[in-house]
């Protein structure tokens, strides 16, 4: 089964120990819990550009009910982005531009200049398609941070919790800038910043799934808690890219799985075990919904509203087609699309 393992010296890992299981208590707190998630899908693919439909959504709950917003931050922001690949001399650069239906949204989005990145040799090893997908999803990823910052600033108070879908790790060079800002704001206001991952690819040093190994460890050590959190598993050390204490939580006895859960490291380091358990117990109180027991309802709701389905793209395709058809670029545009769209055509037959 092994022990937690991170292939990176910037993490301190902790071997399994049954004392690290902590019972989640039945509690109800008056904290506000904000959940935030985003989704994006490609409307038109082409080798050198990608048009994406992006959605970011957040919600706030208190006392198990939606909490009315104080500010005018839109709960759901939807925008189109165009990511292009530009090659000049030996430089390869990705740029992203927005197309906004509501221009007020711009204040909640990252700057377009921060979405301009140079690609280097290792990046191309991902392959053109994966690389384009990665670059094209930057706008959505960054926007999740910028919107979180606005929500902390204008909606949340000391002791409230923000749960972001996924880990607190960054994966783009310019992303740190936004993450730093939002983390600073959270620390300043006393809003606990956390992340919960729907899926976890971490393994132990024997290659066993980290989540499965902890569940197995619990069984083998007769851990009687029906709902528990296990920490510490790992904490990041000095790196800029990931500032978190990593744990695993089973938030409901009827849950089919446990989840990777992270708390902003600077905040977790200043919390007692009891405070951490209280925090997770508060989240567990929102994880009893019959649809998906053990998963925080706020995140589920955010996922539902933020996801972009294939059918959502059709409307935009129609509008884009009709607008582009009026322009001189349509023929060229069409030719490029055809280079990669045969897959979709075949699916329709």
């Amino acid at each position: 089964m092994g022990n937690p393992y991170f292939n990176d010296e910037n993490y301190q890992t902790f071997p399994y120990h049954k004392e690290n299981f902590h019972q989640i208590r039945q509690t109800s707190s008056d904290r506000k819990i904000c959940s935030i998630d985003g989704g994006n899908q490609e409307i038109y693919p082409a080798p050198e550009y990608s048009i994406q439909l992006n959605r970011i959504y957040f919600n706030i709950y208190k006392d198990k009910r939606p909490f009315p917003l104080k500010s005018s931050i839109p709960q759901r922001i939807e925008f189109l982005s165009l990511t292009t690949l530009n090659r000049e001399n030996r430089n390869t650069c990705f740029e992203t531009k927005y197309a906004l239906e509501d221009h007020n949204f711009i204040q909640y989005l990252p700057s377009e200049s921060d979405l301009q990145v140079q690609a280097f040799e290792p990046d191309f090893r991902l392959g053109n398609k994966t690389l384009m997908e990665r670059m094209a999803s930057m706008a959505r990823r960054f926007a999740e941070w910028t919107i979180a910052e606005h929500v902390i600033e204008r909606e949340l108070e000391d002791g409230d919790i923000i749960i972001k879908d996924g880990s607190l790790q960054t994966s783009h060079r310019n992303e740190n800038k936004y993450v730093e800002k939002v983390f600073e704001k959270a620390k300043k206001k006393g809003v606990i910043f956390t992340g919960l991952s729907k899926s976890c690819r971490l393994t132990t040093n024997t290659g066993y799934s980290l989540i499965a190994s902890i569940e197995k460890f619990a069984r083998e050590n007769d851990i009687s808690f029906e709902e528990w959190c296990y920490f510490p598993i790992a904490r990041s050390k000095q790196g800029q890219e990931h500032k978190a204490v990593i744990m695993v939580v089973k938030l409901n006895r009827n849950a089919s799985t446990s989840f990777r859960f992270e708390i902003l490291k600077d905040q977790a380091d200043n919390m007692s075990k009891k405070e951490i358990v209280d925090l997770i117990s508060s989240i567990a109180d929102y994880s009893k919904d019959i649809t998906i027991p053990g998963y925080p309802y706020g995140l589920f709701d955010a996922h539902v509203w933020a996801r972009v389905r294939k059918e959502d793209l059709n409307n935009y395709k129609l509008i884009l087609d009709s607008e582009l058809a009026k322009t001189e670029f349509f023929e060229d545009f069409n030719a490029r699309i055809k280079a990669v769209s045969m897959h979709d055509k075949l699916d329709e037959l």
Binding site: K64, N252, I290
Partner: peptide, 22 residues
């Protein structure tokens, strides 16, 4: 399907700590 499963859990005594949010 979820509704039916949930009702079953409640009826058969497995449904504690489950609820319908909102």
């Amino acid at each position: 399907q979820t509704l039916e499963l949930s009702a079953g859990m409640k009826l058969e005594g497995y449904g504690d700590n489950l609820e319908v949010m909102e």
